[in-house]
Simulated assay, not measured.
Amino acid sequence: MSRTKSMMRALALCAGLVLGATASAVGATAPQTHEAGRLRIAVYNDFAPYSDNGKGVDVAIGRELAKRLGLQADIVGFNADEDMNDDLRNMVWKGHYLGTQPADVMLHVPVDHYLEKKNEQVHIFGPYHLETIAIARNPQRVPPVAGSAARALEVFTHEKIGVEVASLPDDFLLSVLNGRLRENVTHFMTIPEAVAALKKGEIAAVMATRAELEGALGTQSKFEISEVQMPELRIKGWPIGMAVKADNASLQAALSKALEDIYHDGTLDRIFAQHGITHRVP
């Protein structure tokens, strides 16, 4: 299941956002973790530029948070399940039926009131980035994407645009304009695969999250990235944060304080910049 699809299933049902608990001073008692002296951090597998083979933005953030807490970071990669509710169950409060133990904290969780209300066993907090939907395009074939869908997407009635299978952009492009674009929506298993096709000229554009596009394009200046602001796309962006078990107030407070620290001293911006990603404050 696509991570974007998993997140969107939760987000699409409401527009309200909860910013979670504000950072507070960590008490004298060490934060509660599954193993003393260690912080078990859950990140998605195969999710460049956030987490892929032990590297990425989320991995770096997780290691830095653990360092600020004086703990050893244990990075636990996992595959996305059917939806975000399953991911929270598997990696935060219960564990997977195949035997995977839950983590202390899960990163890259949409900070959303409806999602937290449906999952009373977890607390979602600490937004550290604002994710947005964007289009990477070959400017020689695709003009700037602006205005309503009828205007902005007309070019894709004859040019091909790539998407990740079962993602929000996939659902949107297949249904918008009464399905007129369906024949020119090309599906890929991952965004890096779609961007590779863009570089080869096999497609003219790719629609995905901005961070995924920036990560896959690297320093390629031939292509332009623009955020999608058309009114027909109801969900244009969402904050991403973290989740812990609802009853683990000490860990939540400690992580909130550590996140505040790495934001204010510039470490968070540097982590995103080192991975070629534009950091957007939620």
Rank of each mutant, 00 (worst) to 15 (best):
Q140C: 01
I61K: 03
L115T: 06
I135A: 02
Q101W: 00
E64F: 00
H108G: 13
I75W: 06
A149Y: 04
K94S: 13
E159M: 00
L174E: 15
L71H: 02
H123Y: 04
R137H: 02
D52M: 05
H129G: 05
W93K: 07
A152H: 00
G126N: 13
E154S: 03
K67N: 08
E131Q: 15
T157D: 00
E164K: 15
V105E: 05
A134D: 08
K160G: 05
D58E: 04
R141A: 14
I61Y: 04
F125R: 10
P49N: 06
Q121M: 15
P49I: 08
I124Q: 07
P110A: 10
L177G: 11
D112M: 06
G126A: 15
I75Q: 03
P139Y: 00
V109F: 11
P49R: 02
R180I: 01
V122P: 06
H158E: 08
D74P: 02
E164M: 14
V163S: 07
F172V: 13
F172A: 06
D104N: 02
V163M: 11
T100D: 01
V155A: 10
A66P: 15
V155W: 02
A150M: 03
R63P: 01
E164Y: 04
I124T: 05
D112H: 15
L130T: 01
K118R: 15
M84D: 10
R182M: 12
D58R: 00
N138M: 11
E154F: 02
D83R: 08
T132Y: 08
E154I: 03
Q121R: 15
V176L: 14
V122R: 09
M106R: 11
G56W: 05
E120A: 15
S148R: 06
H113C: 13
D83G: 14
A136C: 04
R141C: 07
V165E: 13
D74E: 15
P139V: 07
G179H: 07
R137V: 05
L177A: 12
E154V: 06
V92G: 07
K117W: 06
L88Y: 08
H158N: 11
S167G: 10
N79D: 14
K67P: 00
V57F: 10
D86I: 09
I61E: 02
G54W: 02
D52R: 03
S167P: 09
P143R: 06
R68C: 12
S167E: 12
L115M: 05
Y114W: 12
R68D: 13
H123G: 03
A166P: 01
R68E: 14
V76C: 01
D52T: 03
T132I: 13
G162Q: 03
V185F: 06
V163P: 09
F172H: 12
L115W: 09
G147Y: 09
I161P: 03
N119F: 07
K94I: 02
